[in-house]
Simulated scan of single mutants.
Amino acid sequence: MHMEAPAGKAACSKHIVLVHGACAGGWSWYKVATRLRSAGHRVSTPDLAASGVDPRPLREVPTFHDYTKPLLDLLESLPAWEKVVLVGHSLGGVNIALAAEMFPEKVAAAVFVTAFMPDSSSPPSYVLEKFVEGRTLDWMDTEFKPQDPEGKLPISMLFGPLVIQANFCQLCSPEDLTLGGSLMRVGSMFVDDLRLQQPYTDGRYGSVRKVFIVCKDDRAIVESFQRWMIENYPVDEVMEIDGADHMALFSTPAELASCLADIMEKYD
């Protein structure tokens, strides 16, 4: 059934969907979401499976598709005429890439905030494997553990207080450091599962306009690796934020919200 947009809908506020990274939740966008809502935008901050306040434990989320399903369900529920700006932070870049592959007609733009950005010629695990191979992140007290003796479930991952303070949130306030450390949950990078997936396609994911926001003081996904991803898979626009660590959501929320507001104005 074809649905028309309500009269005047085009002039209404834009809908932006903010997707968190591994071990985090929709809560991590609290500063950015508040600013965007105050400016009149519609903002969604879904919790991915086994994240935030989602009740499932990680062992009930065996695949990356399962992990992404709350985001996919949100897009599927949108009216036919509605497009959203999808924003992914860190591992959330792979979630929004999968969403753009499945629902390209519903995505006005995909925005990667110092995020892993798959290309359309390699399995989606490729950028994650390159990142790990590059050894640009000192994982410090991050815990990686098998979830089951057979190795069928994804390897779990939990960031420890040392790596959060030194490499993720070195420019954040002590309050945000406390908040982040309190709300972290066991997650996964799902590399083994993503290695089995076909590349996302030029005709679907590749057709969606893309913006990469470079966070110049990121010690987790360092600037050189962010630039490598952009060179590996060129985007429509590159923005930069000085003084932004990996959790730019905390350390530079006004600048990040401003970038996102500009994108919503430009890509519809």
Results as ranks from 00 to 15, higher is better:
residue 143 E to V: 15
residue 130 K to F: 00
residue 132 V to W: 08
residue 141 D to N: 11
residue 142 T to C: 09
residue 114 T to L: 02
residue 124 P to N: 06
residue 153 L to V: 04
residue 119 D to R: 04
residue 123 P to S: 14
residue 138 D to F: 09
residue 110 A to Y: 07
residue 147 Q to D: 11
residue 135 R to S: 05
residue 151 G to Q: 02
residue 143 E to A: 14
residue 120 S to R: 14
residue 118 P to N: 15
residue 155 I to Y: 13
residue 139 W to T: 12
residue 125 S to H: 02
residue 116 F to E: 08
residue 109 A to Q: 07
residue 102 M to S: 12
residue 146 P to V: 01
residue 103 F to T: 11
residue 130 K to S: 14
residue 106 K to L: 05
residue 109 A to E: 11
residue 139 W to I: 13
residue 123 P to V: 03
residue 143 E to W: 11
residue 141 D to R: 11
residue 136 T to N: 03
residue 152 K to M: 05
residue 131 F to T: 00
residue 102 M to G: 10
residue 114 T to A: 12
residue 142 T to D: 08
residue 128 L to F: 03
residue 153 L to G: 06
residue 144 F to S: 12
residue 137 L to A: 01
residue 124 P to A: 05
residue 112 F to H: 00
residue 113 V to I: 03
residue 143 E to Y: 12
residue 154 P to T: 03
residue 116 F to A: 02
residue 114 T to D: 08
residue 108 A to F: 02
residue 121 S to Y: 08
residue 150 E to D: 07
residue 131 F to K: 01
residue 143 E to L: 13
residue 148 D to G: 05
residue 139 W to G: 11
residue 122 S to P: 06
residue 113 V to F: 02
residue 152 K to L: 09
residue 145 K to A: 14
residue 120 S to K: 13
residue 117 M to L: 09
residue 112 F to M: 04
residue 110 A to M: 10
residue 118 P to I: 14
residue 102 M to D: 08
residue 152 K to F: 03
residue 108 A to I: 09
residue 124 P to K: 04
residue 131 F to S: 00
residue 105 E to A: 15
residue 150 E to N: 04
residue 142 T to I: 10
residue 113 V to Y: 00
residue 145 K to H: 11
residue 155 I to V: 15
residue 125 S to K: 04
residue 134 G to E: 00
residue 148 D to R: 00
residue 115 A to T: 00
